[in-house]
Design a protein around this nucleic acid. Structure first.
Length: 244
DNA sequence: GTAGTCGGACTGTCAAAATA
DNA sequence: ATTTTGACAGTCCGACTACA
């Protein structure tokens, strides 16, 4: 069955490919377990992604827009409606007698599980298998400096992580499932909670001197750090660095 | 092979309701 | 005052179609 939140189905957005840096995070975390990871959503998708009902990200231009060659001026935040107020809601379910509310019917999760979301603990983190690799200038602009950042020094981010697939990766899971290649790059936006504990890394140009972003070569600096020479006034990637 | 469309499952937000 | 609930607004998965 097509498990919701499962892997990309090819044709559309950022499909499986050697350059796919946008795989469903849930695939990695959950398919080996039988618990599906929660889907992460951006607060505000850009108008393009919203219209296409496709995954967006915080960056402007977002990954998808970058891929399609849209600029900052086209990758705009969508307008959010004002929430209705004052509506009556009817009586709520009573709690079970004592002060404690009825446990969230979440498959009888142990209580210790109740604080995983933000600021995750390194013990269960996917980051155990992660080696920070680098980031792309397009995305770094949205992140604040790391706490350890000192003024005057270049700011290093780790926007992408090298992740090792589970040991059964590459093998079939039920006969038809082909796992992604054993090693993939994951945008750090998938692991916001795990950013702090890890050291900042910077990726240098490879032998080819080329770094790719969303399947496209990045014309910016491959020695990625937040320097004005890489980003424009708005902290964005200069249009010259973007593919047209 | 790539891009566009779309139904609907899923998620995050937050005010009303309930409780301490 | 604080906590909990649940409706709402929104995102985006996954299937499909169209086109080059």
């Amino acid at each position: 069955m097509a498990s919701p939140g499962g892997r990309n189905s090819g044709s559309d957005d950022l499909p499986d490919s050697p350059t796919n840096i946008y795989p469903p995070f849930s695939t990695v975390v959950s398919e080996s377990q039988s618990v599906r990871a929660k889907r992460m959503q951006v607060k505000n998708a850009c108008t393009k992604c919203q219209k296409a009902c496709k995954k967006c990200d915080q960056a402007r231009p977002c990954l998808r827009c970058v891929r399609y060659g849209y600029g900052v001026e086209e990758c705009l935040n969508s307008q959010r409606k004002e929430r209705r107020m004052g509506g009556k809601r009817g009586p709520y379910k009573k709690r079970n007698g004592k002060g404690k509310h009825i446990a969230h019917s979440d498959e009888g999760e142990p209580e210790s599980e109740s604080s995983p979301p933000p600021t995750g603990s390194p013990s269960t983190d996917p980051g155990a298998d992660l080696a920070p690799v680098g980031y792309t200038p397009a995305l770094c602009a949205q992140y604040p400096f790391l706490p350890s950042h000192k003024p005057g020094e270049p700011a290093y981010y780790h926007q992408f992580y090298l992740i090792t697939a589970p040991s059964n990766a590459g093998q079939e899971d039920e006969g038809t499932t082909a796992y992604p290649p054993p090693t993939q790059l994951f945008p750090a936006t998938f692991f916001p909670a795990y950013t702090p504990p890890y050291p900042s890394y910077v990726v240098h140009t490879g032998p080819e001197g080329q770094m790719t972003y969303a399947g496209m070569p990045y014309a910016g600096s491959a020695d990625v750090h937040a320097e004005p020479s890489v980003l424009d006034d708005d902290g964005r990637v200069p249009s010259a660095a973007r593919k047209k």
